[in-house]
């Protein structure tokens, strides 16, 4: 049984959405601008997009690239970050490299990557990979660095080898921090996904959006923004659920939910 306060807390994000749409609707009606359709017009265009086979294929292709880019980045970045956090030599080698890559907008690398690898899936997936890697490496690194020495000593006394300690002590101990990085990475994956499709237009959700913009189909543009936004919210909420379950043992940090889960 949920208390009224609980109910209000759960419903808050829904009200926030409705409020936002209402403001949009009013603003659009007030401005009467062709390039600014009302919220209702935009929402009405959503079924058309999702009902269109070609559009659906485009969106699914986007999601596939995002999933691959994100997945490979996570599998690559967590071990690297953990190793950097526990080994001075590894950190000394990779830190300068990452410091150079970190501030560069990954989309800015796209022209070069396109030149070498073309405008296809590989280029876009690679850009997503780059976007996701850095926060995951950084948070894994920080998490591994913060693991209490005495915890590792306790493991060593039980007979765990250095590799076992990395996998069975550093990894779980750093998991809350790692998952924070993954969550940032997930949102960045969505952003780089759209950006890459905007630069290398050929397929994907970003492609639909910008084609519609070129053709002046503003309701489609705004509908795509809603679709992409909803995708982001759903992915983030799903991830947050998994995260909360995996790190139930660590301290609760906020009472206020920071996602839609």
């Amino acid at each position: 049984m949920m208390s009224p306060a609980d109910l209000a807390r759960r419903a808050a994000p829904v009200f926030a959405c409705i409020g936002l749409l209402a403001i949009w609707q009013i603003a659009s009606l007030a401005l009467k601008n062709d390039s600014f359709p009302t919220a209702i017009e935009a929402i009405r265009a959503i079924p058309d997009i999702l009902g269109d086979k070609e559009a659906l294929i485009n969106i699914l292709a986007s999601l596939r690239r995002m999933a691959i880019g994100f997945g490979v980045a996570v599998l690559f970045s967590i071990p690297l970050g953990l190793l950097m956090g526990r080994s001075r030599a590894v950190a000394a080698f990779f830190n300068p490299l990452l410091m150079i890559i970190y501030p560069v907008p990954k989309a800015a690398l796209m022209p070069i990557i396109m030149l070498w690898l073309g405008v296809g899936d590989i280029t876009k997936t690679l850009v997503i990979f780059l976007g996701v890697s850095l926060p995951v490496i950084y948070h894994s690194f920080e998490g591994a660095k913060a693991v209490e020495e005495k915890m590792l000593w306790s493991g060593a006394a039980m007979g765990l080898s250095p590799l076992q300690r990395l996998v069975r002590i550093v990894l779980p101990a750093a998991l809350p921090e790692i998952l924070t990085g993954c969550r940032t990475g997930l949102v960045l994956a969505l952003i780089t996904m759209i950006t890459s499709e905007m630069i290398a237009r050929q397929s994907g959700a970003g492609n639909i959006l910008f084609n519609a913009l070129d053709m002046g189909q503003y309701d489609t543009v705004f509908a795509m923004i809603i679709i992409v936004g909803a995708m982001g919210i759903c992915l983030d909420a799903a991830f947050e659920r998994i995260r909360a379950r995996l790190v139930r043992w660590s301290e609760p940090q906020f009472d206020l939910p920071l996602s839609f889960s």
């Binding site: 000593w153 306790s154 779980p172 101990a173």
Partner: peptide, 20 residues
């Protein structure tokens, strides 16, 4: 030459595995 299960430490900081 290194740690081993013949010598069991107990630390002031407890050093428990918090995920267990």
């Amino acid at each position: 030459t290194g740690p081993g299960p013949d010598r069991g430490p107990v630390f002031q900081e407890f050093a428990l595995f918090p995920w267990k």
